[in-house]
Amino acid sequence: MSSIANTVSDIGEDIALYRRFIGLRLRAQMQYRASFLMMTVVTFLGLSTEFAAILILFNQFGSLAGWDVGEIAFLYGLANISFGLAEMVGAGFDVFPASIRRGDFDQVLLRPAGIFTQVMAADFQLRRVGRIGQGVVAFGLALAWTPIDWDISKLLYLPVVFLSGAAMFMAMFVLGATLCFWTVQSIELINILTNGGTELTSYPLPIYHVAMQSFFTFFVPLAFVSYFPALYLLDRPERADWPAWIPFITPLVALGFITVARLAWRIGVSHYRSTGS
């Protein structure tokens, strides 16, 4: 029992620590208010061109694999809000390779605080609300364009989808950082799954090759970020191709994926040898 109590109080301490770190970073970023505003606006406008691109394509082609523009905007909103949340919270793992190279990670190991929390809090960019805001606009338009048959279970399900999606992208940031324990230099291979994954999940899964569909369903389960949740929320006919419970295992899949990432991270930490520089 006492070990459970200890774990709970450890988590409490980590959360308090994380909030203090983030508070520091926010205060620092607010010292350069004009710079922060400019970067946020540029990020928002810049990412809006991605959504504008989708609108231009649909203006020309009308539909994609039987999905209309509102339904695609729905997928796009899910993907980008989830990714934006993960990017904002997990940015520390993105800048992690540099701290391995410089040897800064040694300091992290010496401090009497959770390693995971410290790395996660090493970077926090409020300007990333630019991407989340952009996803929210797209999602809002999707709701306006697509009639959804809302009921209580769908309303409860929606926030779970956002959190699960964010957790899956977060897991990928962690896995990308974990690679650096072995490679030392930053291998940006994980960008394929984070940035690439956001674009991939903005379109319905069946447009891709069957091998890709299986890969992103069973191996790297990005299909659960937007496609399976959308099948349920939008009552798409493709739902009949899958067991009825598929959309509902989304949080379990996310939990499994993030557990794998944390396990890999822990192995990485124990494998760590300082660069000595």
């Binding site: 082609f61 994609l64 694999a65 394929i192 991939l200």
Partner: peptide
């Protein structure tokens, strides 16, 4: 690998767009 991955995604995107139109 990233260039190729984006190539594959957009490759299938356009095939699906033309098939639907």
């Amino acid at each position: 690998a990233t260039n190729v991955f984006f190539g594959i995604m957009r490759n299938y995107l356009f095939i699906a767009l033309y098939a639907g139109a």
